[in-house]
């Protein structure tokens, strides 16, 4: 396989990791704990979309087939939108039921073990409700298209990507730009950054941190749902999908500097490419080990990450 193809595949995986890592890092920035349940938001996003897809094609009679060369049709797009709302609600609900009362008692570390327990419960709830077997949104086999003109491909090797993969890259780019504008321009986005910087001072300036916290979960949940649907599109929908993504998410967030939005995006893309190269060299079964190696290397060499501030 030409190197350019390995890199391109890595970017698609990296885009999904980035979407997850952004949510993880936002929760860390605002609530200051490593949320081991974030992977499950991704998995639930994927399964919400699966259920809504059945509803949309069955009840609303939306076309299940793809638009253009995509295997994504209007039905799946509608399901994705619905899944984003539901996953955001799941994040907010989890916070209201569990994390909020633990926050009041103090101790970020209790929050970590609670999130670990919540992750197991959420993951097994999927296995209970949907069964353990993996499924797909669509049985269509996507056609991979050559992207580079012949003259270039003769030198570098050809890149082939399915329309779905291109869609994932485009959607991620749009979401990242939108979130960047939101965090830098809007009042709420600025309030989020202020709360991340110094919650007490933010409250003193009249920022309602409860609203900020709700929106943090909402944004994290929506991005997680997109990541989950993208994962389902390129691989499969399975109860373990969130758990399998969790280590890459943490590695990406720490690589970028935990708490940093831009860092999480960059970290996600770098990690995706690193995984792709690692899989090419040592085989797919050790994919997650790449994330662990990156994680330990960052912790030894530059614990603050690429974009993080030093403690």
């Amino acid at each position: 396989m030409p190197l350019v193809q390995v890199l391109a595949d890595g970017l698609v995986v990296g885009a999904m990791i980035a979407l997850g890592a952004v949510g993880l890092t936002l929760v860390y920035a605002i609530l200051r704990f490593a949320n081991f349940a974030h992977g499950e938001l991704i998995a639930w996003g994927g399964y919400f979309a699966l259920s809504l897809l059945t509803l949309a094609t069955g009840w609303l009679g939306l076309e299940a087939g793809g638009i253009g060369g995509l295997s994504i049709g209007w039905a799946l797009l509608a399901a994705l939108a619905g899944a984003m709302v539901l996953t955001a609600a799941l994040g907010i609900g989890l916070d209201a039921l569990l994390f909020r009362s633990l926050r009041r008692r103090g101790g970020a570390i209790t929050l970590i073990i609670a999130s670990f327990g919540a992750a197991l419960a959420l993951r097994n709830l999927i296995a209970f409700l949907y069964g353990p077997t993996p499924t797909y949104y669509s049985r269509a086999i996507p056609m991979a298209l050559p992207l580079l003109p012949e003259e270039v491909a003769a030198v570098t090797g050809q890149i082939r990507m399915t329309p779905d993969q291109l869609f994932i890259l485009g959607l991620t780019a749009v979401l990242v730009v939108a979130l960047h504008l939101f965090l830098s321009r809007s009042t709420l986005g600025r309030a989020m950054r202020a709360t991340a910087e110094n919650p007490d001072l933010a409250r003193l300036f009249g920022i309602d941190t409860r609203v900020v916290i709700r929106w943090t979960w909402a944004i994290g949940g929506m991005l997680a749902a997109v990541a989950g649907v993208c994962f389902g599109l390129t691989a499969q929908v399975r109860p373990q999908m969130g758990f399998d993504l969790l280590l890459p998410l943490f590695a990406a967030a720490i690589l970028g500097g935990i708490g940093s939005f831009h860092g999480a995006v960059a970290g996600g893309l770098i990690l995706g490419v690193a995984e792709s190269i690692g899989v090419h060299l040592i085989g797919a079964e050790y994919r997650q080990a790449v994330a662990f190696v990156v994680l330990i290397a960052v912790l030894i060499a530059r614990p603050a990450g690429l974009f993080g501030e030093r403690d």
Binding site: F36, I112, I254, I296
Partner: peptide, 14 residues
């Protein structure tokens, strides 16, 4: 302390 949690999670996965 979070980094220890994440690293121990990672080593268990590996």
């Amino acid at each position: 302390h979070d980094y220890l949690a994440i690293a121990t999670f990672g080593i268990a996965v590996v």
